[in-house]
């Protein structure tokens, strides 16, 4: 515990670096997954293939990928860019199938109705299709957040600053408190971001948590307020 108190600045710096790598990767994975999923939805037959290919990407072992990427990208092995690119790829592996499901979850009748009201294709996507895919997109994004935050630590093995360095350093120097601090903080960041997403979802999609209709009003019992109002209007 005294190690933690004595090294708050180190821990803080590593936590900051951790977020600096996780957040861009999460945002990129989410933003890039949307067009890929839309395209896959249009291809119909190929949709299953794209979904499977994306999922297979997640099976690539992370350490070798972190080593190969600098060669491909021409960056230094300790650059945060490598980590962000690698994490974006893993994020896409999770987010693309989730986004495909999300767009499929939107009721075709509602889309047709929107077209019939006079939404153009672009307006229909932004105002109707994307918001309605929101709940399933959010579920996928929550998995991406937790996965990405924990994967950032792998960079620590290569010497890229992150909370992962606390494990590596702690093991080498035999400081249990340092290892524990790394684990607890990584989990805490994942949970905090997840919590923020849930709150954002409630604020942005109040309709998704709105209650269901009461049973169809019985004509014999309490009068339907609608029918009563109709009588008044007529």
């Amino acid at each position: 515990m005294s190690w933690v108190l004595g090294n708050l600045d180190v821990i803080g710096g590593h936590a900051g670096a951790h977020l600096l790598q996780a957040l861009p990767a999460i945002v990129l994975a989410f933003v890039l997954a949307l067009p890929v999923a839309k395209l896959a939805g249009r291809l119909g037959v190929l949709r299953g293939g794209i979904s499977t290919a994306a999922a297979l990407m997640y099976a690539i072992p992370s350490l070798p990928l972190f080593i190969v990427l600098p060669i491909v990208l021409g960056t230094s092995i300790r650059s945060m860019v490598n980590v962000i690119v690698a994490l974006t790829l893993y994020g896409l592996a999770l987010m693309v199938p989730a986004a495909i499901d999300a767009f499929r979850s939107v009721d075709g009748d509602v889309l047709r109705a929107a077209t019939a009201q006079g939404y153009g294709p672009v307006a229909r996507f932004w105002a109707v299709e994307l918001p309605l895919a929101g709940p399933v997109l959010l579920a996928g994004l929550r998995v991406v957040v937790v996965s990405t935050v924990s994967l950032v630590t792998v960079g620590g093995v290569l010497g890229v600053p992150s909370l992962g360095m606390l494990f590596v350093d702690g093991f080498q120097r035999g400081i249990t408190a340092e290892i524990l601090a790394g684990i607890v903080l990584t989990a805490a960041i994942a949970l905090a971001l997840d919590g923020l997403l849930v709150l954002a979802g409630r604020a942005l999609m109040p309709w998704a948590s709105a209650g269901k209709a009461p049973a169809e009003p019985s004509p014999a019992g309490a009068p339907d307020p609608a029918a009563a109002a109709a009588g008044g209007a007529a």
Partner: peptide
């Protein structure tokens, strides 16, 4: 235009 399942936008 009115359709069978009302086709209302569920998020509005």
């Amino acid at each position: 235009y009115v359709m069978q399942a009302s086709g209302l936008l569920p998020h509005r």
